[in-house]
């Protein structure tokens, strides 16, 4: 039933209904923001989240209701994060490399205890391993979906997942 209401709101939003879009934002901002924190960093997550919802607004006309709105939005979010991170990486490559290291070592402000360790450990993973770990173990993507999204083979996705889990185990030890 919730999915039905979301589809209705998505159609209303596509016709310019800001209130309907705000309801969709309220329902999904937590998951989108968390994805941004985990795949990029906390400092960039707010801007990325805003950009994702603005992009979603602009692309609502392409949402046909075949999938759930949340699934559609999440795909859009992942693609936007990957795109923006690539841009950011190129920019940082021109600057000193220490900034990125300092940022990823920074603990999450709102996490605590073991969750903090887990969030921090995610940011210690190499980028590709982190992508696969977040998408598979946290977000529930399949290897086929990850392969398509990241432009890698299913075998690469599986090997990166195992690499990530082994590193996480080590970081959390």
């Amino acid at each position: 039933m919730a999915a039905h209401f979301e589809t209705v709101d998505a159609k209303r939003a596509a016709n310019g209904d800001h209130a309907a879009f705000e309801r969709l934002y309220r329902d999904h901002v937590g998951r989108v923001y968390a994805l941004c924190v985990r795949m990029v960093d906390e400092q960039s997550a707010e801007d990325l989240t805003q950009e994702i919802f603005i992009r979603a607004w602009n692309k609502l006309g392409t949402f046909k209701g075949d999938a759930q709105f949340g699934t559609w939005l999440h795909r859009l979010a992942v693609n936007h994060v990957l795109s923006r991170r690539e841009t950011q990486r190129k920019r940082e490559a021109r600057n000193a490399g220490g900034e990125l290291l300092a940022r990823v070592m920074a603990p999450s402000r709102r996490s605590s205890g073991h969750a903090l360790d887990l969030e921090r450990a995610i940011h210690l993973l190499p980028e590709r391993a982190r992508d696969v770990f977040v998408l598979y173990d946290v977000e529930g993507y399949s290897h086929d979906e990850i392969a398509e999204t990241l432009g890698v083979s299913v075998g690469t996705s599986k090997s990166q997942l195992h690499r990530a889990r082994m590193l996480m185990r080590k970081h959390l030890d």
Partner: peptide, 24 residues
Amino acid sequence: LRAVVAEAEALGPMAPPRDLWAGI
């Protein structure tokens, strides 16, 4: 490894530190 998987699957949404709706 199973513990890592279980903890990752238990990670949930995060509330942004401030409401981002105004900017959107």
